[in-house]
Every structure is written in structure tokens, then in C-alpha cells.
Computed example of a mutant assay.
Amino acid sequence: MTDPTALPDLPLPEQRQLAIGHDAARQAILAQLGEGHLPGAIMLHGPQGIGKATLAFELAATILTTTGDEPAHRVREQVQAMSHPNLSVLRRRPKDAKGYYTVIRVEDVRELRDALHHTRGRAGHRIAILDSIDDCNPSAANALLKTLEEPPADTTFFLISHRPGSLLPTIKSRCHNLALRPLAGGQVRDLVAASVADLDAETLDRAVQLAGGRPRRAFETLALSEASPVGALLAWLQDPLAMPNAVHLQLADALGSDAQGTDMSFAREILADWMATEMREAAIAGVDRRRLASATDLWDKASALLGEADSVNLDMKQTLAVIFDAIRKHCAISAVPVEPA
């Protein structure tokens, strides 16, 4: 099963099988394994690119080894090759030679469900990894819910989610939920330095700084060209109202020219982080309800616009222009002082 989000020249989560950090989550699952009481479904959620899928494959290999009858090195080899008969992985599937479906479809979930109800290929527990459940369309999510309500015996689902707030509450309620946090800067630095040869200190420092605790983002930073508009986006987000009106239109044109490119992928994460920070800071401040309401509306609008652009292949340049304009309007609202009661 190919990974539609794979970065060039970097090992996939199933190939790495060793997550950096996340010790509390790891120990929680290993303790349940040791007691013989693994949950039917485990949701690993947190920002994209912090190692959730890698941890899922690491734990899958450990569970398959502990409950099976093969040595650890043999199980790891099979997980790496995606050939272990007790391991199933569901990701967005190839649509054609040029790309992938934008969602996990209901027929994909049904195929997984049917496979899990067949006689297991080997002794031991079975593992199903959904990377990520956020990609399920509504029909697929409902089909998955039915499976979680009546799971096959001795089977554990690992559901990877970057946006758990957008999932069906009934799915989350069926899972043992574990929140994973961004890594420390030193951990990101060590991982990047070990993965990329001959990296100069200045480039490494920039990658770690922009990563925000996400190794994936650090690697994406290294893939950006010197002419990438991502740096201009970061500068614009520092104070959108201080920039001329034409700047955000130029940014939209530059970033939206390749909707599937590295620059656009990086920009989407940066925008999501910025809006999430706005909502969090507005909620913490608790003084100006307009700011929180505006930030929430901005999040909903941007999520809907990007989702629509993905699903029906709309012009990403126009989509970004509308989102950037909404950000400016939100900043204008936030800049207006709150009159004392």
C-alpha cells in the first residue's frame, strides 16, 4: 500500500518503525498489551508530521510479535514490506498513474472490513491501521463506525488523526484516545541530522525553527527552493493588515499554481497552525468574544473552502485569495479595541 503523503527519499512509517518521543503513549499501550487487554480501537491524534503513523507501525510490530509465534526481526521485516498477513493498512488509494483519490472511499472501508472477517493468516492478534481517518468521506466514516461497533475478535484498529475535532463523536467514543504532542527542538534536530547527510548548520537551524516540533515539516522545509513563497507567507501572517492589499493576491497566485506541490502542502499546514493559534489565544484571553467568534468562523470557512477545492478540483489560487481576504477581515475585527462595559 503506497503512501500518498510520502516525502521523496525519506523512509515511510512502516519502514522506520521507531518513533522518536511519545513515551507516555507508547508505555500506555505496552502496559495494556502486557495485561492482555488491548483496546479494540486506539486513536493517535495530534499535529501532522510528529510521528503518529510511525508509532502505530512500531506498536503494531510489537503486538504482532508478542501475540504471534515468529521472532521480532522476522515480524519487523514483514511489517516493513507490508506483507504480514495479520496487518492491514488503509490509506487513500491510487486513482490512476498520476495521483490518488482525495478521500478514503466507502468501498475501501468495506474491503478492509471483509478482509478482517476472513480467517487470520497467522497466529496472534490482527492490526488495522488507518492513515489517516481524517481522509474518510462521510460514507466511509459511517461504514467504519459500524465495524468499530462490532469489531472482529482479537483485532486492534489504530486510527491516525490530525484533526480529531472534525471526526464523528461516535467514532471517537469507540476509541482509546491518546493525544500526541510536537517533539522538542532537540529531538527534531537529531532526527533531521541523522536522516540528511552533509546538512550545513544554518540550513538545519532554519528547518528546526520552522518545524515547530514536527519532523515532517522540517523535511518539507529542506525541500523548498530558495524562491519558495512559503517564506513570504510566514512574513505576511506576522501582520496581514500592515501589508499592501496586492500582497496576499500575489501569494495566492504563487502558492496556488501547484495545488499538489510541496509549497502548497506546507502553506496549508502553516495556515491551519495560524488559525488554530488564533482560536486558542482568543479563548484564553476570554475578553473579546468577537475575536473568538471570528477566529472560529475563519477556521470553518477555510476548512470548507479547501475541502471543496480538493473534492471538485477548484482553482486553488482563487480559494487562497478568498481565505487570505478572510484572514485580513478577521485581523481587522481583532484590532478594534473592546469598549469597557
Rank of each mutant, 00 (worst) to 15 (best):
T62N: 12
T62K: 11
A97V: 08
T102W: 01
R92T: 13
R92V: 12
A61E: 07
E107W: 04
A60V: 09
Y101L: 02
P85S: 04
V103F: 04
R92D: 12
R76H: 08
L64A: 03
A60M: 08
I104F: 14
Q80N: 15
I104E: 10
M82K: 12
A61S: 13
A72Q: 09
Y100W: 15
H84S: 05
R93C: 01
V79C: 15
P94I: 07
N86W: 09
R110E: 14
A97F: 05
L87Y: 10
A72H: 03
H73F: 06
A60E: 00
S88A: 13
R76A: 13
R74M: 13
E77D: 11
E77L: 14
Q78D: 10
R92K: 14
Q80C: 10
R93A: 14
L59E: 10
K98Q: 09
Y100I: 07
V75W: 10
R92A: 11
G99E: 01
R74Y: 05
A97C: 00
N86P: 02
I63R: 07
R92F: 07
E70H: 05
V106F: 02
P71W: 07
A61M: 09
R105T: 02
H73L: 14
K95F: 10
P71G: 12
E107P: 03
E107C: 08
V103S: 10
D108F: 02
Q78K: 11
Y100V: 01
V89H: 02
Y100D: 04
Q78N: 13
R76S: 02
R105M: 08
R105C: 01
G68Y: 08
R91V: 07
V109A: 09
D108G: 06
V79P: 11
K98R: 09
K98Y: 00
P94S: 10
Y101D: 04
R93W: 02
R74N: 05
E70N: 06
I63F: 01
R74G: 00
V103K: 13
V79M: 14
V79A: 14
I63T: 09
R93V: 11
P85I: 04
M82Q: 15
V79K: 11
L64W: 06
R92H: 10
Q78T: 00
V89S: 09
A61I: 05
Y101S: 00
H84F: 11
T62F: 06
N86Q: 10
A81L: 15
G68Q: 00
H84P: 12
G68V: 04
T102K: 14
T67V: 07
H73W: 12
P85C: 04
L90I: 14
H84G: 06
Y100T: 03
E58S: 07
Y100H: 12
D69Y: 04
L64H: 07
E58C: 06
T102E: 13
T66R: 14
Q80R: 15
E58Q: 15
S88G: 03
D96E: 11
A97T: 13
S88P: 02
A97K: 14
E70P: 00
T102L: 00
D69K: 14
T67I: 06
Y100N: 05
L64G: 01
I104P: 12
R92Y: 11
A61V: 12
L59G: 05
Y101M: 02
G99V: 05
V109L: 08
R74V: 13
L64R: 02
Q78I: 00
G68D: 08
P94L: 08
R105D: 00
V75H: 04
T62L: 10
H84I: 07
A72G: 00
E70W: 08
R93K: 15
E70C: 06
